[in-house]
Amino acid sequence: MLLITCPWCGPRDESEFSYGGEADIVRPPEPEAIDDAAWADYVFMRTNTRGLHREQWVHAHGCRRWFKAERDTVTYDIRATWPMNEEAP
């Protein structure tokens, strides 16, 4: 079980969190202006990074706030976590 640092609550067991997938995927501002391929890219396609990966987590059984994390998908080492509206440390 990973130990994840919630930016508001501090280090907690992974079981308190839910995973929210890759971070920094922006919803297209005008979905109807883009073609099916571009829309599918947004809905379905993810980078599946080997190495440092930016992702979203929510402290579901805690403060219920979303935040971003940078995690090494090979070692599971979590380099940093930070609030949604801030730049990566």
Partner: peptide, 8 residues
């Protein structure tokens, strides 16, 4: 709803 409000 919370996810969309907080992340997007």
């Amino acid at each position: 709803l919370e996810q969309w409000l907080q992340t997007e």
